[in-house]
Design a binder for these strands. Structure first.
Lengths: 354, 354
DNA sequence: ATGAAAGCGCTAACAG
DNA sequence: CTGTTAGCGCTTTCAT
């Protein structure tokens, strides 16, 4: 059918269509975009010409003219983290429904890469940005929100001036997680974090401390830092578990910390929850596969994605009101890796302390 | 410093810079792109003007003019699958090094969504495409390779005419996996697949059958189909495990099948490798966390990504030669979930068969 | 309802 | 080495 175009070799433009249909280029545009009405007869001629030539509108040219690309940029720290993968997946899905596309970049938790990537996004005229900043700070890539197109900060950078920001309620989630362990009778609970400089993490630390305080156990708080790698976390946790007064429960405050914790426990030939209870911040499909099922605090990924997109789209269409700050609740899934401390555990602690 | 631009309200263009620096727009372009030399003094004036105005080149306009977007489109079936997430992550990283950006879309294993997304990519003038097709067939989105910009097919659609194609050596990997189980002494090995219509999967089935044949056990081949969901796979596998003559080993030929298999085994209160050995096609970080560590065939994700990008870039720069068909070897990680059949297992089979 | 003309912001081609 | 000119392909005035 469109052999003609194929043979001609050149990609047809709107002018080619216009000539073939004996109408003005503007008319072709109006038929294809539906922005203005076109007489039925001419409409058909245009459509026929489009089909015959195999014409495809050049979105690039339209973007330049309209000053709108229908592209949004997403910058996240790490796509291999299932949390971010799921977040991006869902945002892409929603954006596509509104005919927006995604330009994706990973900062690899690196401020400089992040800065560079955001600059590229700006040069590319993305209509909006969804960013999960490497640090809770935009100074790496912009002076202020005014330097950027409509931008939503998700998961990190909560509350920064000038942005719609959205994140899980890390404080509350960590507090409830810790309370769960306290309810079970644990008193020596160590919190393992990746990096204390992120607000998310300090919120989790604060939630953990708050729960302890309310139980009158503020002095029992113990936070250890494992870094951004599984092996780093594992090493730190192994040290912790080697202490005579080792904790009876570990609360791993990040995905990699959970993997590190499990590996550390296994490396020392310990069992969980037998020798130590384990609670994970961040849930994953495998946590309900191998035994023991891992008790976990789950972030509402789909809702975070939906809300991010909703807010951004509002800004893009100018229907947004006040800047939003949204905290979404996490859910606690009590499974098998958390249980009351055994008498052996209690005894061990007692001996170590006296 | 660039308060001037801030106050003016309007985004500066190359002409504004040119005027301020008293040079021609083309000169500004030449300074910024480095495509042609510019006298040192004028250079400095231009750079100063750029800084003062806070000018950013509009990549869109440049793309339109140059007929090159430095954007590549990636279409994959599902970003929540760790394999694809890792693939995309790595490709993005490599592309960024060459100053290419990624337009990302998921087809959600759906041919129609895929078709639509590819059309969008084409309209957006992506310089190249990396696609992992929902079916091993491009007919959903193009008549032939000639309809598309330079395109690499990765993981799926291996060998399709007109494309550089690249995939793991699924046949060999499955064969070696099955041989490993045979070497252990297993004779009743069931293969669980998601969907037989994908070439990847039939290759794995063929590899499995081939290994059995070489061992003179062709008649023992048993392949069950669980579909694209974890629960579907689990259900199918549960049924299989309820049979009196249940297998002594399960080879799960896809990530979700592995999750399904583990859940099925647990649901029936069986143990692995005690009651049944388990070998996974596709590796994941958690498989070396919880016990027993899961023996797995690992696809060379990073190499697949690197090779995909290398091939695409060659095409983009016109340095590509013959169309390439690359098979990359998988690696077999023997861990704890596979072991020789116990005497109890042998006995059970014997009783069921007689 | 339609067409002509004027750009969106940039760069390649061509003079000088 | 530098400036001028002419578009890339589309959409939007502004007439008619």
């Amino acid at each position: 059918m469109n052999d003609t175009s194929r043979r001609s070799g050149k990609i047809p433009t709107i002018r080619d269509v216009a000539e073939l249909a004996s109408v003005a280029p503007a008319t072709v545009s109006n038929v294809l975009t539906g922005r203005r009405p076109v007489a039925e007869e001419r409409r058909k001629r245009v459509l026929a010409a489009v089909a015959q030539l195999g014409y495809r509108p050049n979105h690039l040219a339209a973007s330049l003219r309209r000053q709108e690309t229908r592209t949004i940029g997403i910058v996240i720290p790490d796509l291999t983290n299932p949390f971010f993968a799921a977040l991006v997946h869902r945002i892409e899905e929603l954006a596509a429904e509104s005919d927006y596309q995604i330009l994706l970049m990973s900062s690899n938790e690196d401020v400089e890469q992040e800065a560079h990537r955001v600059q590229v996004m700006l040069a590319r005229q993305t209509d909006g940005l969804i960013i999960s900043p490497a640090r809770d700070d935009i100074s790496a890539f912009a002076h202020s929100a005014a330097d950027l197109p409509p931008t939503v900060l998700v998961d990190r950078g909560f509350g920064l001036a000038g942005f719609d920001t959205i994140a899980a309620d890390n404080f509350d989630a960590a507090k409830r997680g810790c309370q769960h362990l306290l309810d079970l009778g644990h008193v020596d609970i160590v919190l393992v974090v990746s990096d204390t400089s992120l607000a998310n993490i300090s919120d989790r630390i604060a939630g953990y401390r708050d729960a302890l305080s309310e139980a009158g156990l503020a002095h029992k708080a113990r936070v250890i830092v494992g870094g951004f790698t599984v092996d780093g976390c594992r090493g730190t946790i192994e040290q912790e578990l080697r202490r005579a007064d080792r904790p009876t429960a570990i609360f791993s405050a990040a995905y990699i910390a959970t993997l590190g914790a499990i590996k550390a426990i296994r490396a020392l030939d310990l069992e969980f929850p037998g020798n130590v209870s384990l609670l994970s911040f961040d849930d994953s499909d495998w946590m309900t596969a191998l035994r023991p099922y891992v008790s976990a605090v789950a972030q509402p990924v789909d809702e975070l994605a939906a809300e991010s997109w909703r807010l951004l789209k509002q800004r893009l269409t100018g229907t947004g009101g006040e800047l939003a700050r949204v905290r979404l609740p996490c859910s606690l899934h009590v499974r098998e890796s958390t249980r009351p401390p055994s008498t052996a555990q209690r005894k061990r602690r007692l001996e170590a302390t006296t």
